[in-house]
Design a protein around this nucleic acid. Structure first.
Lengths: 360, 360
DNA sequence: AATCATTTCCAAAGCGCTTTGAATTTTTAC
DNA sequence: GTAAAAATTCAAAGCGCTTTGGAAATGATT
């Protein structure tokens, strides 16, 4: 059933049927009612391709996912982000087109996508420091929104990010307030902008507290469970081990916990962990009570919102670029506690100012 | 730059340029060379929509992801599967269209997708027992491949599945051979076909060994870490606790381990775990040596292959439906060991026949 | 050199929709 | 009752591509 057939069935011209369906005012209400009713009865939906061709709008958003050929990693948070964005698209009649592309082909992929006109805009995932994709997309003239930010990019562009620096400052301060002085950071890949900002937040807080940063307590790599485990193992077994860990993701935190418990140490007593929790749907941080004390920000919600911003921008290209900086929430679980007192320390406050009190 | 402009630039007709680009024989080799070279220089790529409209083929595959409104879960393995499928699509010039849809709208989503003609076929994810989507898609006439299978469906259809029953038989036998008699199964949602089959395998092996199944040692729910933790906790603290757990996913297994270690028990000595490992990229089962003894099958590889089957089917609709049943590999890690001997038992064999010997 | 077969190229139709500009019908104003 | 205005409807063009049917150019055969 296509438009012609439908219009013949109704004894109307294609023009009128099209207008009735698309809500144009110049069609009698009764006619419109009949048309809509018939369309529903015959399950008529306009052919997307024909519609796009005629309107010049693809009604689709692209997500280019680079998959490194070296390590077969997919961006950890990508599934939930996409799920959120997908909800927005569905609600607005847009389709979501995903391109898997090996990372060296990424620039070409954007060019091709634009030239094939299969999308009206794209979401940029996982920005790095001074990410070249931003200049590229601006040159091409393809609307985009960045999930995250890219430091040192000279242009204006729209982004939605969580305040990674502040989140890690708070996490670090929280541990410092609990009396910890040897605090390790198991970070994500520091070619990623978010990881750089997290490290900065961590270093800021240490500096403010007058604690010297120890390179031996900082690491950076792809965020997997075994990575967390291996790093924690190494640090715990080294001399002058940390009393607390900050993990850049909940997956890393699980690995750190494994190393801790394997050593017969008690989490939240001998060693503390605090992590950045992206609130990934199948990795909930506990049912009710959080397993890990964490700075939390829903990546799914970010997906929903980033998609909205992009659609707004597509619908009104004159609009200035928009920025949204979300503060992560600090949730206190059972993975943190006062630093073990080898030398009797001043009684540390139990929670950071403004944070909810721990349940224990 | 569109076809008309390119052909003008070359002083050729659109027909010839189109044919040259699409590899038709009736064009001089030298002409073809010139055309291809010009296309590359001007970064010309045919407009997808126009191309689809003209050919009647969307050159796109749909993945409909139902997201329950109750629990905001995205299929756990979906990201890696999609990544694999996406590679196949990219290699064959297909696009991947994802639809997030609330599960009650799923049937309508398929109808709409077909009517809008935006895809040439779909992959069906997470089939349940007698999944209604299969009959629906057959009625609509939209080509599809199921990732997994649906028991009790009367029709023929293409699928790619891992032998879940056999995998769990082997896992269970492995534990039985190690002397375990109290073996718990922490399964996924048993409305899912794969979970049913896994339970069947588990029960088969118990029955063969003459061990009575204990409902208290079997559970079924959405596969999350806290679920594994909670169930293991309950079972370990109950009377007559299990000496071994079978987890239906590595995420569950992590929760089980947490409960075990929290109780000061040693994994692989006091309690064993074996899990089904989908080889998810950011959840590698250890670097080198596996953390968990597991039955393993790469879901990413499954994605690649399922996509191939679907594309074959689209390219040749007369082709009969295809089935591929993959055997999971049994990898032995450190999470399993002989059952603790409360009553001195006969020395159990260390590994199942045919399985690689454990490293320890 | 004329004829036929082959190779190479092209004009135009068509895919299913939107949208422009015009035609038709209905309503309003006098 | 008629002219002007407003409300409806429509025919046709166009979006950028593929493909059919045919024309032009080239090569082979006599």
């Amino acid at each position: 059933m296509n438009l012609r057939q439908l219009s013949e069935k109704l004894g109307l011209s294609q023009t009128t049927v099209s207008r009735a369906l698309n809500g144009y005012p110049e069609v009698k209400e009764e006619t419109r009612r009949k048309v809509i009713e018939a369309a529903a009865r015959y399950n008529y939906h306009p052919d997307t391709r024909a519609q796009s061709l005629a309107t010049g709008r693809a009604k689709a958003i692209g997500h280019v996912i680079p998959h490194s050929t070296k390590h077969e990693m997919v961006n950890v948070v990508f599934a939930d982000f996409i799920a959120g964005a997908g909800e927005t698209y569905a609600a607005n009649g847009y389709e979501l087109i995903m391109s898997m592309v090996s990372d060296e082909d990424e620039a070409k992929a954007y060019r091709t996508l634009a030239q094939k006109r299969s999308v009206d805009g794209v979401i940029v995932h996982g920005p790095t420091l001074n990410d070249p994709r931003i200049a590229l997309l601006q040159e091409i003239g393809l609307p985009f929104v960045v999930h995250g930010r890219s430091s040192e990019v000279p242009h204006e562009y729209s982004w939605l990010d969580v305040n990674n620096t502040r989140a890690l400052e708070r996490a670090t301060e929280f541990l410092i307030d609990l009396g910890h002085r040897r605090i390790a950071l198991i970070n994500g890949l520091e070619s990623m902008d978010f990881a750089l900002r997290r490290r900065r937040g961590y270093l800021n807080a240490l500096e403010t507290a007058g604690i010297a940063a120890d390179p031996k307590l900082m690491s950076s790599a792809e965020m997997t469970e075994p990575y967390g485990y291996t790093m924690a193992q190494k640090m715990l077994d080294g001399q002058n081990p940390p009393t607390a860990f900050i993990a850049s993701s909940i997956v890393i935190a699980m690995g750190v916990r494994r190393a801790i418990e394997e050593r017969g140490l008690t989490l939240g007593k001998d060693i503390s962990i605090i992590c950045f929790d992206d609130a990934i749907s199948y990795f909930p941080n506990g049912d009710g009570e959080p397993i890990f004390t964490a700075t939390r920000s829903s990546v799914r919600e970010a997906g929903r919102r980033a998609a909205e911003i992009l659609l707004d921008q597509i619908n009104d290209p004159t609009r200035k670029s928009r920025h949204e900086l979300w503060e992560a929430e600090l949730v206190v679980g059972r993975s943190t506690g006062p630093a073990p007192t080898t030398t009797p320390a001043q009684s540390p406050p139990q929670a950071a100012a403004g944070a909810p009190a721990p349940r224990t």
